[in-house]
Structure formats: C-alpha cells, structure tokens
Design a binder for these strands. Structure first.
Lengths: 213, 213
DNA sequence: AAGATACTGGATCGATTAGTCCACTGAGGA
DNA sequence: TCCTCAGTGGACTAATCGATCCAGTATCTT
C-alpha cells in the first residue's frame, strides 16, 4: 500500500514539531497566560493557520507541549540514570538517583517548570493542559515507586511497597522544592549540592522509619 | 498640628486595601499575566482611576501584593508558632516548627502561591514584583536560620551557624515542594502528614550530619 | 488529466488588554 | 466663603489577545 509516507504529512509533521519546540521554550518561561499565540507564531515562523490546523486551540497546544516536554525530560533522565546495581550500598544508590535527577533537570528544565506553573495557576475553567500534567505526575510517582522498591529489595515484602511510596512522595516534593530554589537564582544555586543533601536525607529518613517500626 | 487623620486620606487608605485584597486573591490563583486590571477593578469595586492613583502600574501593584500577602502569612505563622522551649527534645521541636508552617500555609496560602509563580515566570523584562519576592525569601531564610540556631543551642558555636543554614535550605525547599503537592490536589492531600515527614527528615538529616563530622 | 487531501499564507474578527484623561466630589485649611 | 487637594467616576485609546476564514499550492490517488 501507499508510499513510504506522504511527503505532505511528513512536511506537516515537521511544522508541528517546529511549533511545539517554540511553544515549549516560551511556555516554560512565561506560563500559560504569558504565552501568546502570536509569540509562538513569530518564534516558530509558522503562520497562524498552520498552528490552528495542527492544534484545535491554545489549550490543546499546551497539552501537547506538556507531553512533548515530559518525553524529552524522561528520555534524558533514563539515559543518564545509572544501571541498578544491587551490590551498591543503599545510600550510594539514593545519591546516584538524586544526581541523575539533578542532571536531567539541568538539561531539560522545561517540563517541570511548566508543570509547576500549571500546578499553581488554578484558573476557574480547568485546562486540559493541567489535567495532562496531573496524569503525568501520577506516572512519575509510579516510576519513582518502582525504583525505590528495587532499592529496598532486602526489606520484607509487605513493608517494601509502603516505604517505597512514602519515599517517592518525599523525593518528588523535595525535587520540586530544590528545582524552585534553582529557578530563583540559576546562576548561583548549587543544584548538585542540593541533590546530594536530598540523597542523604532520603537515606536518613528511611533509616529512621525502619528504626521506628 | 492637624486632626487625628485626614478623613480623605483615611478613606483613600481603605480603598487601597480593598484593591490590594482583591488583587491578592486573584493573583494567588492566576499569576501575573492571568491577573487583569479589569478583574481587579470588578472584584474590588474600585474604578480604574483609583487603582492607578494608588499604584503607578500593574508591576507596582504586584510588588505591593507580595508585601501584603507576606505580611499576612508571616503574622499568622508567628501567631501559631509555639514558644521556644529548650527543654523539649530536638525532634519534637522540629515537628512543632513543621506543623506551624503547615497550619500557616493552610490559612494563608496566597503569599507562597504567588511567590512561587513569580519564581517560575521568568519574563524577559524583570518585574519589580519578582525582585521583591527574592528579597523577602532572603528574609525568610534569615528567620529560619535564627530558629534553627536556637534549636541547635547545644552544638558547639562554630558548627551551629553552618548547620542552621543548611537546615534552612532544606526546610524551605521541602516546604515549597509539599506546598506544591498540596496545590495539585488540595482536597485529598494530607499536608500535615507531609510536614510530619518533613520534621522527621530534618531531625534524621541533622543526626546524619553530626555523625559524619 | 482530474479530483481529493494536507497543509499554507494572510487578512481579519470581536473581545480584552494595560493604561490615560479629565471633569467632578467632598472634606480641610484659611 | 473660597481655595486646595486627595481621591473618584467613567469614557476612551492603541495594542494585542485567541480564533476564524478562505483562497491558494503542492502532493497524493484514481
């Protein structure tokens, strides 16, 4: 059947990406309301009609922006992340995870930046983009839980799940907080130092929980 | 000298407060770009000319909004905070601080909500409001450092300052992160549970640092 | 060749934006 | 009484907002 892929569609897909790339860049530093379609048009070089051909409206564009920026960040994170090595001590593994997160955020801050903005902006009419972020955040939580479950392999099975979930909560919150501190003064903030603290805190917290129970 | 206070000025000050109250409310849930002067006008009931009589422009209004919301939050926090009691164990004191913060944020979330939005929104032309938030954040850091220095009273003096600073960093970042998690799903998130974890983590982290050195 | 499909280019829309202007009011000082 | 002045009311502006419309073009199928 048909040719490899319609050259028209191929060209259209390139346009779509150019629009998305421009929108990701702008949205990450200006938020939803601060990103005007006219700015996206200028920076992407695509005419208005093309933008509205690929995306039904601004909200739809933003949902796609969230998806794309998440994909870019997650791919980077999985690429950086060291392989799971059960022979390493737990603290070392927590620190490795923490530094992987720090690196991925330094290279691809757009997703978290935009996501946190959408978290804070609670406009009366709920946006598709925000819902999309909520879904993705749940997925991130699942991934984190899986990772921690692996690190906690030597714990009794019935405790492992709950501790992993609580550690995921803690890690995600602390990640958001340190990322914000970095955003407040990107030139001077020592993000890796901060994430070293996060790794240590994770280990210390777990130790405390184990002692309590 | 004159009468108690000019009734005109008194009335003007009331108007200023009404404008500010409306602006705080709107800004905390919509950010800078999402807050239109027309919305402030409607919700405050004050005409356009009055708003621009009291504030030179939108940026100036926002700087004042930051100041006011900070003042309200800080007053609430200091009101809630339990007195410093050096006889209590350290963990207990960390937990008390954590719960005070949680309570104050539940009652007056506007300051942090707006401040974090301004942190993330990095428009090309730097806004007065964001600078104001940076200043206030430095003040908060000083206050936190003082509090921790007090809790660490039994530590040798030369270590106390550095540990207090590092604990302040950690606590502020974690507070921001947990606040964000709460904002993402305010109806279901257990903010006090989260801040109990924060208190525990603070104590565990300090213990680890002390053991290391 | 003829038609259908997948986009593009550009003008244009009504609504809303931040901000301005100025006549006006009501209270204070002389 | 008359002047001053802090503050109000509301009409108004230029620019920009998100979104629409439609004729035009290139590439596909038949």
């Amino acid at each position: 059947m048909g040719p490899k892929t319609d050259r028209r569609q191929q060209h259209g897909e390139e346009s779509r990406q150019r629009i998305l790339d421009a929108a990701v860049e702008i949205a990450a530093e200006r938020g939803y309301e601060g990103t005007s379609m006219s700015l996206v048009r200028q920076r992407s070089g695509m005419p208005n009609s093309s933008i509205y051909w690929h995306f039904t409206d601004k909200d739809d564009l933003f949902a796609a922006v969230i998806d794309r920026s998440y994909q870019l960040w997650r791919d980077r994170l999985l690429d950086i992340a060291v392989r799971r090595d059960p022979t390493l001590p737990r603290l070392r593994r927590f620190l490795d995870v923490a530094h992987s997160i720090a690196d991925s955020l330094l290279e691809r801050p757009e997703f978290l930046s935009l996501g946190l903005m959408l978290t804070l902006e609670r406009r009366p009419v709920e946006a598709k983009a925000r819902e999309r972020f909520v879904e993705i955040r749940a997925e991130v939580h699942r991934i984190a839980r899986t990772e921690f479950t692996d690190i906690l392999a030597d714990l009794p099975e019935e405790r492992r799940g709950e501790f992993a979930a609580r550690l995921a909560d803690f890690t995600i919150a602390a990640t958001d907080g340190y990322f914000l501190a970095y955003q407040l003064s990107p030139d001077t903030y020592d993000l890796h130092g901060a994430f070293a603290t996060l790794g240590t805190a994770t280990d210390a917290l777990l130790e405390r929980w184990l002692a309590e129970s």
